[in-house]
Amino acid sequence: MVTTRTTMRTHWVALRTMLIFTLVLGVAYTIVVTGIGQLALPAQANGSVIRSGDDIVGSALIGQSFTDADWEPLPEWFQSRPSAAGDGYDAGASSGSNYGPENADLIAAIEERKAQVAESNGVSPDDVPADALTASASGLDPHISPEYALLQVPRVAAERGLAEAAVRELVESRIQARDLGYLGEPTVNVLQLNLALAELEG
């Protein structure tokens, strides 16, 4: 027979247990991990930021858009993937597009991007790789495929008056192989590539 008294007692035990767990598993655990991170691994724990002088120009992990105020691509920079985070690479609003495979808006967007990338780089639409045409899951993907990076070399070199071979060499030196040689996909970090590109000129 369950009395009100035992029910009350059980809940009283539950409440005290929850408070202990909140202190240990919520507060203490988080503080300990934060302490370890800040003391032993401060660069990673604080977002792997890249500095130029004293200013933070970004995070090695968070993609940026290389567009003007009207979201038009700036041709002198290597372009990132399309982004559905806010108006594009809004790091406060990570998101994919969530368009399904038959969504008419997505199909139209891919067609438009395909034409734009092909035209601005002077290549056939069939040569544009998939990552150049699709928005990533986070909207903050810092990477593009090596194919998309290499495809942009002639355009970037021409815009900047640089030798194409020099830019190509730069891109090739920036290709990150699969983790441990076989996990994930080969990538090029766009922000780091563009930073190196800026130095190439300087």
């Binding site: 495979p101 891919i110 998939a130 990552d131 045409l133 928005a135 990533s136 899951a137 990477h143 990538t187």
Partner: peptide
């Protein structure tokens, strides 16, 4: 398979490049 993935040349919508 599907209209958009086929047009893009791969089902990369909503996927991160590093994971593939």
């Amino acid at each position: 398979a599907g209209t958009a993935p086929e047009l893009a040349g791969g089902a990369m919508e909503g996927k991160e490049q590093r994971f593939g």
